[in-house]
């Protein structure tokens, strides 16, 4: 779409060149920063990521050894989070696409709430975890059952907090997938005499399974890297064992990195460990996000 640039006076052509170049520079700069970051982690931490690093417990006050409990804790956390959050997110998305009249005030408020939830700072979710899950629900359950294990930070409450935090991620992804299911399929099903509920359960949802998967993966990617929200809801800096009950505290990759890089007595000593941990954490979230992006782009093409 090249127009007759050459007929313009020189200063204008210069401005034009500058205008395009500055946009290009910005894009290149952002890409450069990303590549520089990843490059620095790979070159400094690549050698540290070995099988023993991944499979050993940390030793000597987190200055030696591996990250196994952090890896396991993160995995358990995101699994529990998925179990708690994805059904709610999926149901909300089904409501928004299948039931709701788009301009009803309830649908609009749900949408507004989802957008708001996405914008709430993660540290506020952490406070919410303390105020609601630990203080209110945990102490409530303890008082009711006569136990003493719920009124403190734990895997369960952290997973619940993260489930609320990642709710918008799931809803947006699943909604997009449900909307991608062709209208013809719905109409064909209804024309054959199926009820609306049967259509949703047997036609719409099976066709949107990849979308639900994408939503879960994106949520897991977000949850795996989130530290601020779980800081005081159950994460711990050191643990002798892998948690065996949901009421136990757990180690987390992101928090482990935070502890190593800011709270260790000798930060320089553990620098190789920090780089290796960063690389594992970034690799994990990167893989998850990449998978989601690939599934999504396939979905869009369809």
């Amino acid at each position: 779409m090249q127009t007759s640039t050459s007929s313009m006076p020189l200063p204008k052509r210069l401005i034009g060149f500058f205008a395009v170049t500055i946009a290009l520079t910005a894009a290149v700069a952002v890409l450069g920063i990303i590549l520089g970051m990843v490059g620095s982690f790979v070159s400094n931490g690549g050698g540290g990521v070995t099988w023993t690093f991944l499979s050993e417990f940390p030793r000597n006050n987190n200055t030696e050894g591996g990250i196994w409990p952090a890896l396991a804790g993160t995995t358990l956390l995101v699994l529990l989070m998925t179990i708690l959050g994805v059904p709610v997110g999926t149901a909300t998305a089904i409501y928004l696409t299948e039931f709701a009249k788009q301009d009803s005030w309830f649908a609009r408020s749900v949408r507004f709430a989802v957008n708001t939830l996405a914008g709430v700072p993660s540290i506020v979710f952490g406070l919410f975890g303390v105020g609601f899950f630990i203080q209110f629900m945990g102490n409530g359950i303890d008082g009711w059952l006569g136990t003493s294990s719920f009124g403190d930070g734990s895997l369960l409450w952290s997973a619940a907090t993260l489930a609320v935090l990642t709710l918008p991620v799931v809803i947006v992804a699943v909604e997009e997938a449900l909307r991608a299911v062709p209208r013809d399929l719905r109409e064909a099903s209804l024309a054959l005499g199926a009820t609306r509920w049967q259509t949703i359960v047997k036609v719409v949802v099976p066709n949107a399974v990849t979308g639900i998967l994408t939503g879960s993966i994106l949520a897991v990617g977000r949850g795996a890297g989130e530290v601020a929200a779980i800081l005081f809801v159950g994460v711990t800096y050191s643990s002798e064992s892998i948690p065996s009950a949901v009421t136990e505290k757990f180690m987390h990759l992101g928090y482990h990195l935070f502890v190593l890089s800011t709270q260790s007595p000798d930060v320089d000593l553990t620098l190789p460990l920090q780089y290796a941990t960063t690389l594992v954490l970034l690799g994990l979230t990167f893989l998850l996000n990449l998978t989601a992006i690939l599934i999504r782009s396939r979905l869009r093409k369809r």
Binding site: L31, I34, G225, V227
Partner: peptide
């Protein structure tokens, strides 16, 4: 590529 940056954990 730029959207991947959104997936970088903030601790990283």
């Amino acid at each position: 590529a730029i959207e991947l940056l959104a997936g970088f954990p903030s601790v990283v």
